[in-house]
Amino acid sequence: MTARDELRREMVHNHLYMTEDRADELIGAVLAEVAATANAKIQAVRDLHRPVEHSGITICAECSGWDGETTDNSPCGYEHCPTLRALDGRETS
């Protein structure tokens, strides 16, 4: 039994008196809220790891320690950013 099915069963049969359709509606609403929150957090990470131009190459602002003019760290090519690679499901090592 999936977590969704188990929650639905609990909502309908054990604790709350509601129809299966209403339980499905509430579960769907919660899932939509969780997805929206997760997507916002992922976008915030992507915004930190934004591409910037430095010495003729595109680097990751966050990994390179970009301050608007120079880097605090060795420049990390944007396509090599391990954070974005992980978010995109690409190999990071």
Rank of each mutant, 00 (worst) to 15 (best):
R4Q: 11
S93G: 13
A32P: 01
T37I: 11
E79I: 10
S64R: 04
T83K: 10
G77E: 10
L48Q: 15
L16V: 11
A40F: 09
L7W: 02
V45N: 07
R22S: 12
S55F: 04
H15V: 15
D21W: 05
H80Q: 12
E91M: 11
E20R: 12
I59W: 01
D67P: 03
T2V: 07
T83I: 15
V34L: 15
A38R: 15
C81L: 05
A32S: 12
D24I: 01
G28K: 00
A38N: 11
C63E: 06
I42G: 07
E53W: 04
A61Q: 01
Y78G: 00
V45H: 07
H15C: 07
Y17W: 13
M18K: 08
L16G: 02
L26M: 13
G28I: 01
Q43W: 07
H15D: 08
A3F: 10
L84Q: 04
D88A: 13
R9E: 14
Q43C: 07
L84E: 04
S55K: 14
M11W: 11
G89R: 03
A44S: 14
H54I: 03
N14K: 14
D47I: 04
A61N: 02
T19Q: 05
L16K: 05
M18A: 08
R50T: 06
T71V: 12
D88T: 03
R8W: 02
Q43T: 11
T70S: 14
V45R: 09
Y17H: 12
E33H: 10
E91R: 14
S64A: 05
C60R: 06
T19A: 08
W66D: 07
R46W: 09
E25C: 00
A32H: 05
D88E: 14
I57P: 00
D67L: 08
R22G: 00
Y78V: 01
L87D: 07
T71S: 02
D88K: 03
R8C: 10
E25W: 01
L31P: 00
N73C: 11
R46F: 09
T19N: 03
C81V: 04
T19W: 05
R85E: 01
T83V: 15
E10D: 12
N73V: 08
E6W: 11
Y17Q: 14
R50E: 06
D24Q: 03
T37S: 12
S93Y: 11
I27H: 02
V12A: 06
M18P: 04
A44T: 13
V45E: 10
R50A: 14
A38T: 14
A3G: 13
D47P: 05
